[in-house]
Design a binder for these strands. Structure first.
Lengths: 231, 231
DNA sequence: ACCTGAACACCGTTCAAGT
DNA sequence: ACCTGAACACCGTTCAAGT
């Protein structure tokens, strides 16, 4: 179509190859050499498109967040309660955005490491932030408080997802069964001494369900309780 | 003192060297080769003490969390309000623990990456969890809810610290002034088009203060509002 | 039992050279 | 203008060999 492309690759093609690698072999496989290799070019040729690996990762984060559903699409969750339908709808939208972020990051292997690998300051991260600000101001918060609330909700969501994925990792390790690691670190001898932590032991059943969507939403709801409280 | 040490090093000495490296040169410098080199031994000798780099990092996490002040030390914050002094004291303790965790992780360069590099399931992580469970049950929550609340608070704290440190990174990068990265990624042309995000622009002043302790505590307080709410 | 040296299969990045 | 090849200074991990 074009008179003749100066470059053999588009950024979109490079990012696609990078995500294929991420999905297939995990975050560690997304190396400059690996991405270049899967595109049939030399590692140094990739530096023509991105000035550093960090820049490549930033491009990937943007590409990922572009798929985040953030707008106030109707029919998400019809409000059935009579009365303050607007506020309830806004609240449902906030929960929806948090859940969408969680699904985006738990759906792609290595996506969390990607997000955590750099600051969230690209246009799509700002789109997310703007959507949260809209929702919080729409539910009656002053702009300053809305900004703090948006930040708090993002912090909870990212931290929650990070804790989840760390626990998934340990389940995967359980198969290889690492040795108990009895070291001379203070307290390390008690590694499996659950009796020292009676409440943790008793609540083990709940702890086992931490990776569930319900747990995530429960936390979002409690945070929103605090953030949206008035009078 | 001892009849004759079989090993030339203790785990404590190795961890100390590893933390010196972490503090001095950041997380990337904490390599098997780097730690071994700073101890005057060969990389392979380190595998006598830790079976993998991952095991070394787990040891470091435990070492770090051992320094976390988690107990109900008196005089932290004398309750001045008459009335429900116990509950207020418990709440103050929760804020205190969250702040202590934040100071621990922002105080040591690379400590967050360390924490995020694996699951939080060592004895000192359990000590933290147990302390949170005690506080939440003491303020009237059922054990199930207390477990969920403890998890939510840890999620918020870790996520908040992660967002902070990512922003610190970008400030450091501002000096080297990376090019604006005009790519053909959808939306990337709007990278600096703040006008598209009016609320984000207006609240930029608040956003600039995100790395403050006050912002962190505000979020903890709002979360606790939701978690501790009754009737 | 502890440690070394050599090796394997990787990294991100730079730079002179080709077309 | 785009790309290659060689090189630099690194990784984590394994394994035979020494003491």
């Amino acid at each position: 179509m074009r008179p003749g492309p100066r470059r053999s690759l588009t950024h979109a093609e490079i990012l696609e190859a990078a995500f294929d690698l991420l999905e297939a072999k995990g975050f560690a496989a997304v190396s400059v050499r690996g991405v270049a290799g899967s595109l049939g070019i030399t590692p140094t040729a990739l530096y023509t498109y991105y000035p550093s690996k960090r820049a490549l990762l930033r491009g990937m984060i943007e590409h990922l967040l572009a798929r985040l559903e953030v707008s106030a699409a109707e029919g998400d969750k019809p409000v059935e309660v009579a009365g303050a339908s607007t506020v309830d709808g806004v609240r449902a939208r906030l929960v929806h955005v948090a859940l969408a972020l969680r699904e985006l990051l738990t759906g792609h292997a290595g996506a969390l490491e990607l997000i955590m690998s750099g600051p969230l300051d690209g246009p799509n991260a700002m789109r997310l932030n703007e959507a949260l600000l809209e929702s919080f101001t729409a539910s009656g918060l002053a702009l300053d408080d809305a900004a703090r609330a948006a930040h708090a909700l993002q912090a909870y969501a990212l931290g929650s997802i990070a804790l989840e994925s760390a626990e998934v990792d340990v389940e995967a390790d359980a198969a290889t069964s690492e040795p108990p690691l009895m070291t001379d670190v203070p307290g390390a001898a008690l590694w499996t001494d659950l009796a020292r932590f009676p409440l943790s032991e008793q609540s083990a059943a709940v702890a086992a369900q931490r990776s569930s969507t319900a747990q995530f939403v429960w936390g979002v709801e409690r945070l929103l309780d605090g953030l949206l409280a008035r009078g």
